[in-house]
Design a protein around this nucleic acid. Structure first.
Lengths: 243, 243
DNA sequence: ATCAATATTTTTTTCGAAAATTTTGACAAC
DNA sequence: GTTGTCAAAATTTTCGAAAAAAATATTGAT
């Protein structure tokens, strides 16, 4: 509950906490897939990845099987691993479940949240809105920062929800959506303006208006989802033309 | 969709399909933990497990990290793995979320289900009720069978739900509950009679009465949960006396 | 030229041992 | 009696190479 939770974990030196090599590989790959740096369907070959992150085959395998559990990678037994495919159907599924679980967590948070929770929401919103209002500098870095604080803001909103499982599932779905956003971001012309959505959402939450907060959250998820679906549909048409 | 799905996977020889060694170890351990054969908090040592299932350290580690993802095992980096602890708080959390997700899946299933779906429900109920009405023979084996067909029946009820993620999450929660049930089963004097609950549930589903089905499902989850909580509470009191 | 059979190469999977780390136990000092 | 230090033992983690399997190339017969 300290301010340490606000720091970017990647930025602060990773030298203090010693975790397993496989854990490291898992996180690195996860980030790359999440940010759309490695595209859906891409074959993940041992030799290349081993060199790239200097780990042994066994540890790499451990990392890959964990990514399968995460839903970011698929495995064909004895034929290796690939980045999980994306589909409009799956995105719709993810989004629909998000419209159930996010409001559930949000209502819990509003009910149980204390002053520290409210302060954290304000703080993360501040950081997020600064980046959100910025015009595109170096697009790659900006998107990474935007994504980080966007996630932090949404996390802060529901942080006071006492249900571990709800929090866990909503986090899984959030990250899945985030991959779709990152993949689409590479293809989009201009991003949807949603600064208002986030501010309104924050205000509803901070005024403990659960009904309004739920309404805005559902709307936010649906608008985002529809926007991504459009981009993916356009991309599919492009692919079909190419064939 | 064939009748093959009704077979007990463990019973039919495992010789045909060749999966990875780690996968095998993962499933074996998973089953043991799920059935309460290895108790919460128990340290999972490499040497012993390696011997027990004749597998190398790396493959075993892969299996264990997957069990961590599954939520059945916890890991303290560089201090090994243990069977995840249980708590009344967690059981309540799991059950509450089940009262959200099971009805969600059930409504979807009722809306989308076809004749094959209905037939499957009838078939699994038949198998389940036979075992359920039986008086305890060899308790260990009976419980295993009961658990298998109980799970198969609940799975069949929602099988027609088209949402992959909903199905995935509800399956995770079902298995988590099942571990609590198995652990409690070892301590209980006599099990709660719930044959009626299952039959009524089936009848509501087959008559496409979504509201009634939802009501019965929620009730079923809550009654089961409360019954398990009681047993766990009694066990806790016992432990405190012992100290 | 086509196909099947076989050899070669590439890639994944598994192991067993070495390295790193934590735990235990003995002994000494306060 | 407690605390601290150090070596020994136990345990986990990691690697690199061997084994197994799959993909690809080659050959030879029709």
């Amino acid at each position: 509950m300290t301010s340490a939770e606000l720091e970017i974990p990647e930025a602060t030196g990773r030298s203090e906490i010693k975790v397993s090599v496989a854990d490291d590989a898992h996180r690195k790959l996860r980030t790359k897939i999440l940010q759309g740096e490695i595209l859906p369907g891409h074959k993940l070959k041992f030799e290349i990845l081993q060199q790239e992150m200097s780990v042994s085959a066994s540890s790499l395998r451990e990392a890959l099987t964990r990514l399968v559990s995460d839903g970011f990678v698929t495995s064909e037994p004895r034929r290796g691993f690939s980045v999980a495919p994306v589909s409009i159907e799956e995105l719709k599924d993810i989004s629909r479940l998000r419209t159930i679980l996010e409001p559930l967590a949000l209502r819990d948070a509003i009910e149980h949240g204390d002053d520290a929770w409210e302060a954290q929401i304000l703080a993360t919103y501040h950081r997020f809105s600064k980046i959100d209002s910025l015009q595109g500098d170096a697009p790659g870095i900006r998107d990474e920062q935007w994504s980080h604080w966007h996630q932090a803001f949404h996390e802060a909103l529901v942080a006071a929800c006492p249900s571990k499982k709800t929090m866990q599932f909503r986090a899984v779905l959030f990250e899945q959506s985030e991959r779709y956003r990152a993949i689409s971001a590479a293809r989009r012309k201009q991003s949807r303006k949603k600064s208002d959505e986030h501010r309104n959402l924050m205000e509803a939450v901070l005024s403990h208006d659960a009904d309004q907060a739920e309404k805005l959250m559902v709307k936010h998820i649906e608008l985002t989802s529809n926007s991504l679906i459009e981009i993916l549909q356009a991309a599919q048409v492009q692919e079909q033309k190419a064939v």
